[in-house]
Nucleic acid binder design. Structure first.
Length: 296
DNA sequence: CCCCAGGCAGTTA
DNA sequence: TAACTGCCTGGG
C-alpha cells in the first residue's frame, strides 16, 4: 500500500449504527477535562499521547486524525465502544421513572476509560472547584510539564505530564496555574506515584473496595474524588461517586429527607448493582444541566 | 459585599 | 464517627 499524495491530509475512521454516542453528552457530562469544543459539534481531545477530534454527523461518528490501527488499539477501549449501553439503560430505568427521565436526558453518554494518573490528578484539582477552572489548570499542567505531541488544527497539543515530570514542579509554580491550596496535594501525590512505580496499575487489579482504599491514601483524595478515579479510570463501574448534585438528587427523589454519604452509596449500589456508576453519571448530568445553563 | 463551585484535611467533642 | 471549619480563586 502506497500513498503518493504529498499533501497533508487528515486520516479518519468512521463508524455507524452505534446507539448512545453523543459527543455533546460525553464531554459535557463532566467526566473529563482535556477537551475543547470546535465548530459544528466537533470535539477535540488529548488523551493517551494522542490528539483526536470526534464528530457526529447523522448516524455517523467520525474520528479525525487517527487510523484503524490506533482506533482498535486505543480509542475502542477509551470510548467504551464494546459496552452495550442500551442494555444498561434498560436495566436502570426498569421500574424507576426518576432514572428513566435522567437516562432519556443523557442517552448519548459514554463513560470514557481514562488514564489513571491523569484522572487522579485532575479529580484532586476538581475538589471544591468549577469546571472552567479545572480545565484551565489541567491544560496548564500539560503545557508546562507535559510533552508536546503534535501540531494539529493550527496549534500545539501537549500530553498530560508524567508523574516524574509533575514531581519536579514546585507548589508555587502549581499555584500560578490556578491550583490554589490543591497544589500541595498534587505535588505530594505526583511524587508518591513516581516513587512507587506501578502503584496505580497494581490498584487496578484489586476489587473496588481495596482499590478505593488505596486511591484514598493519596493526599487530596477523599471518598468522592477516590470514587471518581476508580470509576473513570480503573474499571470499577459499580462505584458510585456522591457529590453535592447527586446527593441533592438522591435525597429529593429517593429519600425525601437528608441522607448520609454512606446511606446514599449503599442504597445506590443495592438498587443499581454493577451499573451504579453509570446510574450516577446519568443522575449527575441531569441534575446539573437542569439547574445550570452556562456549562460551556 | 457574599456565596458558590463535582471536597478534603485537620481539629473537636 | 460525626460535626465543624478553613481553604485558593474566579464568577455571579
Amino acid at each position: 500500500m502506497k500513498d503518493l499524495n504529498p499533501l497533508e491530509r487528515e486520516s479518519t475512521v468512521e463508524i455507524q449504527n452505534l446507539s448512545s454516542f453523543e459527543p455533546r453528552d460525553i464531554f459535557h457530562c463532566g467526566q473529563s477535562f482535556r477537551w475543547e469544543k470546535k465548530r459544528d459539534n466537533r470535539y477535540l481531545l488529548v488523551a493517551c499521547q494522542r490528539v483526536i477530534e470526534v464528530e457526529k454527523k447523522g448516524d455517523r461518528i467520525i474520528f479525525h486524525n487517527t487510523d484503524i490501527r490506533d482506533f482498535n488499539k486505543v480509542w475502542r477501549d477509551y470510548f467504551d465502544l464494546d459496552t452495550d449501553y442500551e442494555k444498561i439503560q434498560k436495566r436502570l430505568i426498569r421500574r424507576d421513572p426518576v432514572m428513566e427521565e435522567a437516562v432519556k436526558f443523557g442517552r448519548g453518554i459514554r463513560i470514557l476509560k481514562q488514564e489513571p494518573f491523569e484522572t487522579l490528578i485532575s479529580f484532586i484539582i476538581s475538589s471544591n472547584n468549577n469546571i472552567k477552572r479545572i480545565k484551565g489548570s489541567a491544560e496548564g499542567l500539560a503545557r508546562t510539564y507535559g510533552e508536546m505531541i503534535e501540531f494539529y488544527g493550527g496549534e500545539f497539543h501537549y500530553a498530560f505530564p508524567t508523574p516524574k515530570a509533575l514531581s519536579t514542579a514546585t507548589v508555587e509554580e502549581l499555584k500560578l496555574l490556578g491550583l490554589g491550596y490543591r497544589a500541595r496535594y498534587v505535588k505530594e501525590t505526583a511524587r508518591k506515584v513516581w516513587e512507587n512505580p506501578g502503584i496505580l496499575e497494581k490498584m487496578i487489579k484489586e476489587k473496588r473496595r481495596e482499590c478505593l482504599e488505596g486511591v484514598t491514601n493519596f493526599s487530596g483524595v477523599g471518598p468522592k474524588v477516590g470514587s471518581c478515579v476508580v470509576f473513570f479510570s480503573m474499571g470499577k463501574r459499580e462505584a458510585f461517586p456522591v457529590d453535592v448534585w447527586v446527593k441533592r438528587m438522591m435525597e429529593v427523589l429517593y429519600f425525601q429527607r437528608e441522607a448520609s454519604l454512606k446511606e446514599i452509596e449503599d442504597f445506590a449500589m443495592g438498587k443499581f448493582g454493577k451499573y451504579a456508576g453509570y446510574a450516577q453519571q446519568y443522575l449527575f448530568y441531569y441534575a446539573r444541566e437542569k439547574k445550570i445553563k452556562n456549562i460551556r
